[in-house]
Structure formats: C-alpha cells, structure tokens
C-alpha cells in the first residue's frame, strides 16, 4: 500500500468505523465479536485498498466482507451461536418494565435466529437492500432471501406475541 492509499485507508477507518461496528453489532449481537469481524474484514480489505477505493461504494464492499467474515466464522464455530426456541431469562428481564421493553425483547428475539436469517433481516431492514442485492451479498438466490426473511419474521412475530401474552 503506497502512502496515498495508506492515508486514504486510515481516513476511511477513522470515519466509518462507528457505522461499521454498529452494523456488525446488529449482525452478531455481541460487541466483541462485532469488533473482531470489523477488524478482520478491514484487514482483508487493506491489501487491496487501492482497488477498493476506486469502487463506487467502498463501504458497501467492506460491509459485504463483514457479512461474509461473520457467516464464515459461525460456520467454523457453530457452538458460538446456536438458535434457541426458548430465549433464556437473563438480562432482558430487567428492562421489561421500561419504555424500551419492546425493542429489548426484539433484540433478544433476534439472538434466537440462525445467523443467515439474521443477516438477511439486518440487510433488509437496516441496510434497506433489495432482495437481489441481499442475494448478491450472501451469494444465494432471491428465492432463498425471500424464504429466509419470511422465516425470520415469523420467528420474531411468534416471540413478540409470546412476550405480549406473558405481560
């Protein structure tokens, strides 16, 4: 990496790290895992930064690297994130009575989704990507994106309804 690329990459990391970390946090639900995959994705990008920086959307390229890094890591270590039908009672219980209860419940319901379904929903409802763009990022068909999104939403709806019924 030459000096100009180095300066540009440093500026990019400084400016976009908070946004990239937020995105990674939504994907993983774990702040340390988020920091880990963002650094790994940026490290992968660094070598080819002179090429990446000339793209229309370098940040989109990095976000795609983040998604793939996360899904690859989950595939290698499946025990780290296992979907559970029943969300365990833990820290979420403390905030049920507060005004942000619903979001907290939704955040914990997201933790019960398989990583790929969660990624589809984050790309759809946070990144506002189209189905074909999501399919491009994840390397799958539009039909798969559609079905994954539908399954994910169904799971979330069930959890939210269960929460409502219990309160």
């Amino acid at each position: 990496m030459n000096r100009a690329d180095e300066d540009d990459f440093r500026s990019f990391v400084a400016a976009r790290s908070p946004s990239l970390l937020w995105f990674a946090h939504l994907l993983t639900g774990d702040r340390y895992a988020a920091e880990d995959i963002v650094q790994t994705a940026l490290a992968k990008t660094a070598a080819g930064w002179s090429r990446v920086r000339r793209k229309d959307n370098p940040e989109g390229y990095v976000r795609r690297a983040i998604v793939n890094t996360h899904l690859n890591a989950v595939r290698r270590r499946p025990w780290r994130e296992q979907p559970r039908e029943h969300i365990p009672e833990d820290v979420d219980s403390r905030s049920r009575e507060h005004e942000l209860d619903d979001r907290d419940s939704m955040w914990h319901a997201l933790a019960g989704l398989p990583p790929r379904q969660r990624a589809v929903l984050v790309l759809r409802y946070y990144e506002d990507l189209s189905e074909s763009d999501i399919a491009d990022v994840l390397g799958c068909s539009r039909g798969t994106v559609k079905s994954q999104a539908a399954k994910g939403l169904l799971h979330l709806r069930r959890i939210v309804q269960k929460e409502d019924a219990s309160t």
């Binding site: 440093r10 650094q39 939403l153």
Partner: peptide, 27 residues
C-alpha cells in the same frame, strides 16, 4: 419494531483506541 430495534442507538459501538493499528497489524 424490527426496524426501530436495529436503528436503536443503544446498539451503536464506539471504536476503541488503537483500532486502526489493530487492523494494520492483522493485515
């Protein structure tokens, strides 16, 4: 609710000091 949750600023993370150096070291 999902959209609001994902946009909830409480899930925002601030980069730790040395983030760039960590990236370069990994690279």
């Amino acid at each position: 609710l999902l959209r609001d949750t994902l946009a909830d600023p409480r899930h925002r993370l601030e980069p730790l000091p040395g983030m760039y150096e960590g990236v370069r070291e990994r690279a």
